[in-house]
């Protein structure tokens, strides 16, 4: 099959929509969490102002090459995850660069950003960054385990590694969703989802009150802005994977927006109710509750 060049502007259009949706959704979720605390919360355009301000800072200092590359890796992790996963099912415009084995690639990209962050934060030389990154890697690894198990269960179930085929198999009604055909895998994956969204109770890595803000301690101005952009893209990209694997994908943008919002809301809902875990607590929690579910899902498939 010849590569169709038109896919590139289409993919960029997807990226554009997702960035803006991610920025607004992030602020909206902050607002929702604030309303739980009876506050008004940030204005809905707050993320844009922060981003422009950070790009607009006049000075910045560097700690070396990896310090530059850290945010770049992180952003490419988010963008890559988004681009290699079909965003809108059945749409020629928004199926992006998906191909037959994209499920494995998606799994890889989920982890890629964190690794890039580790390199960059290590280069910054700040002890808080090093501690934060080791905590972050430990927690993300623990959270990734049940997710990987769930993905394997789903891949076994549908006998394919192509996300597009998995979405196709779930069409034709709500009862065909993986959520109902393989509830154990979805449960394991959703628990992992809580861990990777960087919201309470699993936000000890990035929480400003902890080891000050963790890995990005030294990051500022444009570096931080790149990471903020990733903060807008990455959750959405991750949710797109979840939506495609477990919740039947989305055939149109409104359905996409609605489903992403609902899945995002799960983590916010849990986050406002539960206090923060320490790292060793959260790792134990993943190993005790989420991993057995994933193993069970594989066994039952």
């Amino acid at each position: 099959m010849a590569f169709e060049w038109i896919k590139i502007p289409y993919a960029l259009l997807t990226l554009f929509i997702v960035v803006n949706y991610g920025m607004l959704l992030g602020a909206l979720m902050q607002k929702i969490a604030a309303r739980v605390g009876r506050r008004h919360g940030v204005p809905i355009w707050q993320n844009y102002a922060d981003l422009i301000k950070n790009y607009g800072l006049r000075t910045s200092i560097t700690h070396g090459v990896m310090f530059y590359l850290g945010p770049v890796f992180r952003l490419s992790g988010g963008v890559g995850l988004l681009l290699f996963v079909p965003t809108i099912y059945g749409s020629e415009m928004f199926s992006n660069l998906s191909f037959a084995g994209d499920l494995i690639l998606a799994l890889y990209f989920v982890f890629f950003g964190t690794l890039g962050m580790a390199l960059g934060a290590g280069e910054s030389g700040h002890p808080h960054a090093a501690i934060g990154v080791s905590r972050g890697l430990a927690q993300v690894t623990a959270a990734e385990l049940p997710f990987a198990l769930a993905v394997f269960a789903v891949a076994l179930q549908y006998q394919t590694l192509s996300i597009t085929d998995i979405v196709a198999a779930q069409q034709g009604g709500v009862e065909n969703w993986t959520l109902f055909t393989n509830p154990l895998a979805v449960a394991a994956a959703m628990l992992a989802f809580l861990g990777s969204m960087m919201r309470p109770p699993f936000d000890v890595v990035l929480a400003p009150q902890e080891i000050p803000i963790g890995p990005p301690t030294e990051y500022h101005s444009s570096y931080l802005a790149l990471m903020q952009t990733n903060r807008a893209i990455f959750p959405i990209a991750k949710i797109v994977v979840y939506m495609n694997l477990f919740f039947g994908g989305a055939a149109t943008w409104p359905v996409f927006f609605l489903k992403v919002f609902c899945i995002y809301l799960v983590s916010v809902f849990v986050g406002v109710v539960f206090p923060r875990f320490r790292v060793e607590q959260s790792i134990r929690w993943f190993l005790v509750w989420a991993v057995p579910l994933g193993v069970l899902a594989i066994l039952l498939v």
Partner: peptide, 22 residues
């Protein structure tokens, strides 16, 4: 930061590191 005054709605946030604060 509390619900009574809630400076966040004016775009005021607290950062723990000097690098990110302005």
């Amino acid at each position: 930061m509390t619900p009574r005054f809630d400076a966040y709605r004016y775009g005021i946030q607290w950062r723990p590191t000097a690098r990110q604060a302005n």
